[in-house]
Design a protein around this nucleic acid. Sequence first.
DNA 1: AAGTGGTCTAGACCACCCG
DNA 2: GGGTGGTCTAGACCACTTT
Lengths: 238, 238
Amino acid sequence: MKNKYLVIYQELVEQIEDGEYKVDELLPSENELKETFDTSRETIRKALNLLSQNGYIQKVRGKGSVVITRNKFDFPVSGLVSFKELSEKLDQNAETVVHDLTLTNPSRHLQHQLQVTKDQEIWRVVRARHLAGESVILDKDFLIKEHVPHLTEDICKDSIYTYLEGELGLKISFAKKEITVEEPTLEDKELLDFEGFHNIVVIKNYVYLDDATLFQYTESRHRPDRFRFVDFARRHQS
Amino acid sequence: MKNKYLVIYQELVEQIEDGEYKVDELLPSENELKETFDTSRETIRKALNLLSQNGYIQKVRGKGSVVITRNKFDFPVSGLVSFKELSEKLDQNAETVVHDLTLTNPSRHLQHQLQVTKDQEIWRVVRARHLAGESVILDKDFLIKEHVPHLTEDICKDSIYTYLEGELGLKISFAKKEITVEEPTLEDKELLDFEGFHNIVVIKNYVYLDDATLFQYTESRHRPDRFRFVDFARRHQS
DNA sequence: AAGTGGTCTAGACCACCCG
DNA sequence: GGGTGGTCTAGACCACTTT
């Protein structure tokens, strides 16, 4: 509990989710909130901007902050979410099978994607994700060894992210994501239950650390029926 | 040219894109920028936060603002982009065929999606988008007549967004987007050049106005080879 | 006219990084 | 220790909506 504006943000999120402020209602004005939280208006505005960015409110000039609908199906695939968090949200029987966990030198393609030289060692992790008894997602992770000296099958079966952020204290700050639909490869057909599906959804992720260094490249290959992406785009200035 | 922080933002974007600041280099510090732009630090910070949100820089505590790579293929499909802007970016021969432009009463499904009653009239617009001579995208737009009294084929052939924002002065503020992969419908097969493709990428858009009212529901149906989505996700606080 | 959010200012203290 | 970005403050003026 440090940052005032974060505390205020969390407090307001809770109140909205508890239904204390309903959809289409107005939040108290910034001046009122300033008083109730005993702070300055700019700090209140920081908290409100967070609410706005995360899809809780829409600010309207001259009126106030309107509470808006978060879609029912609004689970946050948008942004950075690991399979572990995701399967917990979806509340399904989830299992992970590790097919490969090796140290290699990067191919030319990977050298380019990860911006490394051919002499830097790279972890290659291939995992199949099972939901409701079917193998539906193939995750291929490539991590720069320099940042991740150790990696075991147990870590990969659980969640690499949890390990990186928890044990290693690495701070992941942002990711660039590219989504395309492609023909399945032989590897896809081998490791996934494909049953007559003709395409595969490929999500390429470039993951950056807090200090702006690129350290991981991931391909997450989804059977099309098990793919859904939700995005929340706010219009900014030109 | 009004908002100081926007002017500063645009100035810095230009300098970065012109290569005055290169990838992995630091921008001048906030205090220096404060002086050069003759303003306060908070205003500089507002501009820098915009740069950060739009993927130009990564701020590192104790060091400065690092310029980061925008991928070469980084055309902004992320966020709200109309077909017109998109085809201009891609620099292809683009054409739009209007297949339907009618006023109807909403089906039960649409009543739900648009949150309207069955008595409110709705524009139904169906357009096929042609790129390089092939019909590859099917756009189905549903607009609430209350907000858009007039609509002509010419407007639809050009860009509905341009008309709404330009002529009508409507301000679009944000959209919720959902991407899935589905089986093509008969309509898809009729109106698109499908040639052996087995899936279709469906992008459902819920578009909101400045005052937080929902006014449009759109389905954009892409042939899989013509679909690509780029996202830039920043990790925020818990 | 009163109230709302949007912008801008000048100053302060802090946590962090680096030489 | 000096510089950096992160947070917070108290106050000001503006554009907009509502009564």
